[in-house]
Amino acid sequence: MADFLQENDLVTLRNRFKKDAELLLHSISEEGIDEKSKYNKDVKPLPRINRHSVFWILASVGLTYYVDFFVEIMENEDIKSWWFNVGLVLLGVCLSLAAFCIVYLEWYRGIKHYEQEYPAIPPVTTAAFIAASCSFNIALWPVWSFFTPVILFTQFMGVVMLISLIG
């Protein structure tokens, strides 16, 4: 009989701890939800125009002017045209996939999480962009030498920040 009482007491104790743990977890999750909703009410969205975006846009515009970016692209004979054309095609693939995701999937069909519906789009776009940037660096290396990656990165950041202000 002593074994039975000990076993019964153990079951009762375990059930009491289980119930207390459930209540504790439930109250913590409710407090966490309350804290999150209070935090979300207090947090203001970041301003669209900030120092970071202004810096990259101005750096891109200044660099475009300083190195005669478009004149060099159009007229310089040292550019490796095959690599440049490959870069243009890959950049076109990236922009087409981005337009497909933003315009068709998000705006037209209302799909916010398109990476769940079409899981191949993000890695394909990323791979195409990396390959495009490598192609552009190879193509434009004879023009700006070791400044080429810095110039192209600055142009990329300027365009991204400008798009973030528009969108």
Rank of each mutant, 00 (worst) to 15 (best):
W56K: 04
C101T: 15
Q155F: 04
I163R: 08
W82T: 14
S29Y: 03
I102R: 13
L162N: 01
T64E: 01
S164M: 05
G110R: 02
R16H: 06
T154E: 10
I73W: 12
D68E: 14
L25E: 03
K19G: 01
F129Q: 11
V103D: 04
K36P: 00
L88Y: 00
L10G: 10
T12V: 07
D3L: 09
S81V: 14
G92M: 12
V150C: 04
T148Q: 04
N85G: 02
L165E: 05
A127E: 00
W141E: 14
L23K: 10
I57R: 10
C134A: 15
F153Y: 12
E31F: 13
K19L: 11
M74D: 13
L46I: 05
I79C: 08
N40D: 12
H52R: 13
Y118L: 12
L91N: 09
E7N: 15
D3G: 06
L165M: 12
N50R: 00
F84S: 06
Y65A: 13
M157T: 05
A98Q: 09
E106H: 13
D34S: 11
D68L: 04
V11L: 14
F69C: 02
N137L: 07
S29V: 11
A128K: 03
G32K: 15
I121N: 04
I28Q: 10
K112E: 15
P119K: 01
W144K: 01
L90H: 05
S37W: 03
V43Q: 07
L5E: 14
N85S: 13
A132R: 00
W56F: 15
A99K: 04
D20Q: 11
L140K: 06
L95H: 11
H52K: 12
I130E: 02
